[in-house]
Amino acid sequence: MSSNAVLGLLRPFMLDRFLHMLVLAGMLLFAMAPQPLAVLCDFVDWRTIVTLLGLMLLTKGVEISGYFDFIGRQIINTLRSERWLAMFLVFSAALLSSFLTNDVALFIVIPLTLTLRKLSSLPVGRLIIFQALAVNAGSLLTPIGNPQNILLWSKSSLTFMEFVGLMAPFSLVMMLSLLVLTWFSFSARSISKTPNTQVYPYQTRLLMSCVALYVVFLVCLNFDVPFYGMLVVFLCFLIMARKVLLQIDWSLIFVFIAMFIDIGLLTQLPAVQPLLTRIASLPDSSVYMLGIGLSQVISNVPATILLLSYVPSSVLVAYAVNAGGFGLAIGSLANLIALRMAGERMIWLKFHYYSLPFLAWATLVGWGMLL
């Protein structure tokens, strides 16, 4: 491997301030509550890590094939208004997240959205923010829409359609609210296309290979052997397209590993342990607010795992942790994925301009439906 390639791999780690903060926080927490290495490894949800890596590899492969450029041009030529393009992309993200999970949906729609930056003067950053909100709103509908719902469903006795029936009112209100917000947040003016944008033919062989590998990977996920699926994807790209391995955001993988370890260490603090044991005796309103609050601090998937250790799976917990996906970026892993993929420094601040009011609205709507 050349020195330039090594430098290219290391640069994201050197510039990733969020990762640096997580590492420093982890060192401080470890000093306060030391744990054996095996326990630190157990804190990490390796299924999530492996799934994330596999999806990142596949998405980067499709991106390098040039197919997103082709599709992006077709969309712009069909939907000529910024407003209708935004409505289409936001609704598509929500719909995909209901059945393919929120992270899979993002790995389909975000790279496509990013290609629009090369083809037009669209406010791509704002589009990505709304797509992040959309996958949170759409994924809460089904038991397979996001990791927290999968956990809640597995701990309940509900059928697939019974779960959907309980979540549908909340999801519908949040999705309609987001579409209304999208309508007023994007201009009705025609899309201004970037002049002299070259069109490159996409690499059919690489694209078809990615599609085939995607099927293999999803089958492995379905049979709960994600590591083997990721290994197949990794080895295939190592043989036929090493450029994919060099261009994915490896530091994002370590961000998630550091988050899991930090959260695990936080729950082991002696000062925190007595507080956790009191959760089972809390009234419904307190459990609801605790689920939302924990999501803002440790993300909604770990918050779900923690709550289910003390209270049974219920629509109350489901509404709380799904509402908690809005608000701060850390509220949902999907938010972090979307904002990292956007690659814009100021997008983190802009995201909270929309997401914090949406959290307040989701909190009110969810509690109103539970009464």
Results as ranks from 00 to 15, higher is better:
residue 314 S to H: 11
residue 348 W to I: 12
residue 74 Q to G: 05
residue 136 N to C: 13
residue 183 W to A: 12
residue 357 P to G: 11
residue 80 R to Y: 02
residue 190 S to W: 00
residue 345 R to M: 07
residue 357 P to K: 10
residue 188 A to V: 08
residue 225 V to L: 11
residue 167 M to D: 09
residue 210 C to S: 12
residue 214 Y to N: 09
residue 141 L to T: 12
residue 269 L to F: 11
residue 145 G to P: 07
residue 327 G to N: 07
residue 191 I to A: 02
residue 129 I to R: 01
residue 335 N to V: 05
residue 281 S to E: 14
residue 46 W to L: 11
residue 23 V to Q: 06
residue 83 R to T: 06
residue 117 R to C: 00
residue 295 S to V: 00
residue 204 T to I: 07
residue 366 G to E: 06
residue 159 T to V: 05
residue 104 V to H: 00
residue 17 R to A: 11
residue 229 G to T: 01
residue 232 V to Q: 07
residue 22 L to I: 02
residue 215 V to R: 00
residue 163 F to G: 09
residue 76 I to G: 08
residue 232 V to H: 10
residue 150 I to N: 04
residue 331 G to S: 03
residue 183 W to P: 01
residue 354 Y to H: 11
residue 281 S to L: 14
residue 187 S to E: 13
residue 223 F to T: 06
residue 48 T to S: 14
residue 74 Q to W: 00
residue 198 Q to I: 13
residue 356 L to T: 05
residue 88 F to I: 01
residue 101 T to A: 09
residue 80 R to W: 05
residue 85 L to W: 02
residue 125 G to D: 07
residue 189 R to F: 01
residue 137 A to H: 06
residue 361 W to D: 01
residue 337 I to T: 08
residue 210 C to L: 10
residue 40 L to S: 08
residue 8 G to Q: 13
residue 217 F to V: 01
residue 45 D to K: 07
residue 154 S to V: 01
residue 318 A to E: 03
residue 331 G to P: 02
residue 37 L to W: 15
residue 83 R to Q: 15
residue 60 K to V: 01
residue 128 I to Y: 02
residue 131 Q to W: 04
residue 143 P to N: 11
residue 178 L to E: 03
residue 186 F to L: 04
residue 212 A to P: 01
residue 166 L to Q: 15
residue 167 M to P: 05
residue 55 L to I: 08
residue 313 S to A: 15
residue 112 L to I: 01
residue 332 S to F: 01
residue 288 Y to E: 09
residue 257 I to E: 03
residue 71 I to F: 08
residue 56 M to H: 02
residue 5 A to L: 15
residue 154 S to N: 14
residue 233 V to A: 04
residue 42 D to L: 09
residue 272 V to H: 05
residue 10 L to A: 15
residue 157 S to V: 04
residue 79 L to I: 14
residue 230 M to L: 15
residue 88 F to Y: 15
residue 50 V to W: 08
residue 202 Y to Q: 10
residue 72 G to D: 04
residue 161 M to G: 12
residue 174 M to V: 03
residue 92 S to Y: 01
residue 208 M to S: 14
